[in-house]
Simulated scan of single mutants.
Amino acid sequence: MSATDPGLADAEALDLSDIVDTARYPLHRPDDPALLETVEMARAHLDREGCVVLRGFLRQDRLERVRAESARMAETSFYNTREVNAYFTADDPELPEEDPRRLFMTRTSGFVTRDMITADTLIHRLYVSRAMKSLVQRCLGEPRIYEYADPYAGLVLNVLPDGTEQPWHYDTNEFIVTMMTQQPESGGVFEYCPNIRNPQDENYAEVGAVIRGERTQGVKRLDLQPGDLQLFKGRFSLHRVTRVEGDTPRLTAIFAYSQAPDVVGRLERTRQLYGRVSEQHMLAEERREARADGLID
């Protein structure tokens, strides 16, 4: 790659040595002992706690570029403030007041969607690359993973300025991959409850206790740093990002992959998060079937 060519997102890319610390994470050498050790460690952590952090994944000399790119994109962020429960469902007055489906929290955050992230940014190059997909697939123990077909949600930048937070919630997807690109001055801590629910049991009593602040045992906190890569099974682990404080927003790239091709986000949730929907979302909603695991989305 020449000095004048910044590089473009390329789904065939195997060599990410200009972005990733390949001395620690030799993605271009799948059978390298260091990479095999990383994959084994990641699988163990994901099986036990539903979460793993690959520290220093991004090269140190790329941290400022990814921060600057993210800060520039953050200026176009869509912000939305809503009262939501952990399931993004409407209130049901027939449920008991202590039921977590009736516990609503203020969610204010911003997103820059994939259609607004140019192909020369480092996070776009990472997201589509064959090397990145191979790493995520192996760490999760999946036979194959796919980019989201969603025109907005496949790759997004989450923006949390002063006074905003992401309250307790679950992810729609079984897993998510994220990388903080800018750390706030204070707050913005990632907290989660590993495997607090499963496909057979929503565990409403314990979930409600966590949301009300009555239970802190089992709540884990992560000290994430810019350039760390986090793999997280957020469909079964309740999680949040605490309130951000200070003039420096918390910026995080979210790399959304799926176990099946052609995944498109739900219409109403897309409208809530990004302020708009596409024809692709409307068509997908018409064809959508119920989730096989039966959990509230």
Rank of each mutant, 00 (worst) to 15 (best):
H28T: 01
T216W: 15
T164S: 15
Y204T: 14
A209L: 13
A68F: 06
E97S: 03
I254V: 01
Y79H: 12
S17M: 12
D15Q: 11
H239K: 10
E98M: 12
P96K: 02
D201C: 14
V210P: 09
F236Q: 03
L251W: 10
E98C: 06
P261D: 10
V264S: 12
R130Q: 07
L238Q: 03
R197D: 13
E69I: 08
E286M: 14
E268G: 00
Y148R: 12
H169V: 07
V210F: 05
G246A: 14
C193T: 08
T108F: 02
P143F: 09
R82S: 11
D61E: 00
T164V: 13
V264G: 13
L140V: 12
F255S: 02
G141R: 12
S134I: 00
H28I: 15
R240I: 11
L273Y: 11
G246W: 02
A209P: 09
A290V: 04
A131N: 03
R215I: 13
P143H: 05
R48I: 00
A149S: 02
F78D: 13
D115E: 03
E191P: 05
C139V: 11
E289T: 06
H45C: 11
D171N: 05
V219M: 04
K133M: 14
K133W: 01
T106E: 09
P26K: 05
R269E: 08
L8Y: 06
F111R: 14
F78E: 01
V177S: 00
E214C: 02
E289Q: 13
T252V: 07
V219G: 09
T38F: 02
A131M: 05
Y146N: 14
Y87I: 06
N158F: 09
T270R: 04
Y87E: 11
R62K: 04
Y127Q: 03
D5G: 00
E206S: 15
M41F: 04
Q183R: 07
D91V: 05
R144P: 05
R243F: 06
T118M: 13
M41D: 03
H281V: 03
M282H: 06
T22R: 02
L224D: 02
A74K: 03
M116P: 00
V277G: 03
D15R: 08
D115T: 10
L267R: 03
R72V: 10
L135G: 14
L283H: 14
T76C: 01
S17R: 01
L122M: 08
T172L: 06
R59C: 08
S134M: 09
T118D: 06
R287G: 07
V39E: 10
L36K: 01
H169P: 14
F57M: 07
D15L: 14
D31V: 09
R197C: 05
R212A: 02
R43Q: 07
R235N: 05
E245M: 15
D262W: 14
L122D: 06
P30S: 10
P199Q: 12
E268T: 10
D61C: 08
T106G: 07
A74W: 05
D5Y: 08
V136M: 14
